[in-house]
C-alpha cells in the first residue's frame, strides 16, 4: 500500500521532471535560435540568408569574414585595437577607483561617510543622458573630443557607481578583525587595502573586471558622441557603419563582423560564468 503510493508519487515526479525539461529545452531553443541564426547567416551566401529557416549554409562563405574585415574604409584591425585600448584602460580605471571608494565606504571611519554613501547610491539612478550634455560641452572645451579621454578618464574617477556598490557588498563580508589585526601589526590604511582586503576580494574584483570589460566593449552611446574620426572608431561604431551602407546589401559581411564582435563576450562568459552568476546574485544588477 505504502510502497505503491510512493512508487506512484515517484513516477508522477519523474514525469513532472521530464515535462519540465521538455519545456526548458523548448525555451532554450527559442532563446538561442536568433544567435545561431546570426552565426549561420554569417557563413551563408548572400542569397540564402533570407527566405529559409535552414541554419546550415549550402556552402561556407568564409569570404564574409575576410571581406567584411576590410569592407569599411578602415580595417577591423584598427577598430579592435581601438576597442581594446578603451576597454583595458576603462577596466583598470574602474577597478582602482571603485575599489578605493568601496574600501573607504566599507572599512574606514570618517565623518560624512553615510551621507556620501547615500549620494553614491543615488548616482546609480541617474541616467547617463542627464549628465551627457554638460560633460560633452566640458570635454569639448578641453579639446578631448575625438580622443579616448572622455571615455577613459571618468572611469578613473569611479564614474560607474555600480561597481562601488558591488565591491562594498563584498568587502563588508570580510571580518573586521582582519583590519584590526593588521592595524596592530603596523599596517597603514593603504597597506591594509593592498595586503589584506584586495587579496581576499579577488572574486569580487574578477566579477567587476568582467562586467566592466563586457559593458565597455559593448558601449555605444559614449563612443558615438565622442568619436568622430573613423580611425578612432570602436567596434560597435564600426558595425553601425554597415547599417549606413545597407543599400549595398553586404548582409553576410555585416553578420560576420557582428559575430566577431560578440566572440570576446561569449568567451569571457564561458570562462567566467561562475563569477558572473555569483556577482549578479549577490549584488543584483542589470
Amino acid at each position: 500500500m505504502l510502497t505503491s503510493c510512493a512508487l506512484q508519487r515517484d513516477r508522477r515526479e519523474r514525469n513532472g521532471r521530464i515535462l519540465k525539461h521538455v519545456f526548458l529545452i523548448g525555451v532554450s531553443v527559442v532563446m538561442l535560435y536568433p544567435l545561431f541564426w546570426l552565426l549561420a547567416s554569417s557563413f551563408k551566401p548572400e542569397n540564402e540568408i533570407f527566405g529559409s529557416l535552414t541554419l546550415w549554409p549550402s556552402s561556407f562563405q568564409v569570404e564574409n569574414y575576410t571581406k567584411g574585415w576590410t569592407a569599411l574604409p578602415m580595417s577591423f584591425t584598427t577598430f579592435y585595437i581601438n576597442s581594446a585600448i578603451v576597454t583595458v584602460l576603462s577596466v583598470i580605471g574602474n577597478l582602482i577607483s571603485c575599489s578605493f571608494a568601496a574600501y573607504a565606504f566599507s572599512r574606514l571611519q570618517f565623518t560624512g561617510r553615510s551621507f556620501f554613501f547615500a549620494l553614491m547610491m543615488m548616482t546609480l539612478m541617474i541616467p547617463y543622458h542627464v549628465v551627457l550634455i554638460p560633460q560633452y560641452v566640458q570635454f569639448l572645451k578641453l579639446g578631448w573630443v575625438d580622443t579616448y579621454l572622455p571615455l577613459v578618464v571618468p572611469r578613473f574617477l569611479a564614474s560607474e557607481a555600480f561597481f562601488i556598490f558591488l565591491m562594498v557588498q563584498f568587502f563588508r563580508q570580510l571580518p573586521r578583525e582582519l583590519d584590526e589585526a593588521a592595524m596592530i601589526d603596523g599596517c597603514s590604511p593603504f597597506k591594509i587595502y593592498w595586503a589584506i582586503i584586495l587579496p581576499l576580494s579577488l572574486p569580487a574584483m574578477g566579477t567587476a573586471a568582467i562586467f566592466s570589460l563586457i559593458w565597455t566593449w559593448e558601449d555605444f552611446l559614449a563612443p558615438l558622441i565622442y568619436l568622430n574620426d573613423i580611425k578612432n572608431y570602436t567596434v560597435p561604431l564600426a558595425l553601425r557603419l554597415f547599417l549606413d551602407q545597407e543599400g549595398q546589401s553586404a548582409y553576410g559581411q555585416m553578420f560576420a563582423m557582428s559575430v566577431l564582435s560578440l566572440v570576446p563576450v561569449v568567451i569571457f562568459f564561458v570562462l567566467f560564468q561562475k563569477l558572473i552568476v555569483r556577482g549578479i546574485a549577490t549584488s543584483g544588477m542589470k
Binding site: 578605493f100 570618517f110 549620494l119 597603514s188
Partner: peptide, 26 residues
C-alpha cells in the same frame, strides 16, 4: 578622517565633476 577621504577622493572628484556639476549645469 584623512584616510577615508583620501581613498574616497577619486570618487568625490568624479561625483562633483561628472555627476553633481553636470546635473546642475544641465
Amino acid at each position: 578622517n584623512a584616510p577615508g577621504y583620501i581613498f574616497l577622493s577619486p570618487w568625490l572628484l568624479g561625483f562633483f565633476l561628472l555627476a553633481l556639476g553636470p546635473i546642475l549645469a544641465s
